[in-house]
Amino acid sequence: MATRLRVNGTPRDVDLPDDVPLLWVLRDALGLTGTKYGCGVAACGSCTVHIDGEAVRSCQVALADVWGEVTTIEALGTADALHAVQAAWVEHQVAQCGYCQSGQIMQAAALLAETPDPSDDEIDAAMAGNLCRCGTYPRIRAAIRSAARSLREA
């Protein structure tokens, strides 16, 4: 029996076992490869997506446990405009290898949706579970501050 999900605003039916991690549903069944596999144990944050606006590690959410609409990096911005976090990432040249960036961006977007003017401590706490092998943490924090300003001014 197929499971119906709402992903990036579109109802999607997937015929997979209930225990398949959402990460593999997104990447393998739906072809949404912007969400990355990093560690498989929710320790790195590369697989971060939103479920009903909450940042979650998709490698640890079983298909049967998805409780709401899933948003991936592919739907964060629009065809006409990047999301403020994505634009700030470009402006601050955050990405080096880029592998963790979709998870970093999704985590930052969830933070700013909940906390429009985060302190450095709030940024650090929210982003603590997202690892960057390249060490661009100062640029990540600067980009989040910049995106927060842009969102508040919009």
Rank of each mutant, 00 (worst) to 15 (best):
R12Q: 11
R12L: 06
D13E: 14
D13L: 10
L16E: 13
P17I: 08
D18A: 15
P21K: 09
L23Y: 08
L23E: 08
L23S: 11
W24L: 02
W24R: 09
L26Q: 06
A29Q: 13
K36T: 07
K36F: 09
K36W: 04
K36P: 05
G38Q: 05
G38P: 06
G40S: 07
G40Q: 00
A42M: 07
A42Q: 07
A43R: 06
S46R: 02
V49Q: 07
I51D: 10
E54K: 14
E54T: 15
V56D: 10
R57H: 14
C59S: 12
Q60I: 10
A64T: 03
V66Y: 09
V66A: 03
W67R: 15
W67I: 00
E69F: 05
V70F: 02
L76V: 12
G77E: 01
T78D: 03
A79I: 00
D80M: 00
H83P: 04
H83N: 05
A84N: 11
A84C: 12
V85K: 11
A87G: 12
A88S: 15
V90A: 15
Q93S: 14
Q93W: 13
A95N: 06
Q96V: 12
G98M: 14
G98W: 13
Y99G: 09
Y99P: 09
C100E: 10
Q101C: 12
Q101Y: 13
G103K: 06
Q104E: 11
A108D: 05
A109E: 06
A110S: 15
E114H: 07
E114S: 14
P118E: 04
P118N: 00
I123A: 00
I123W: 03
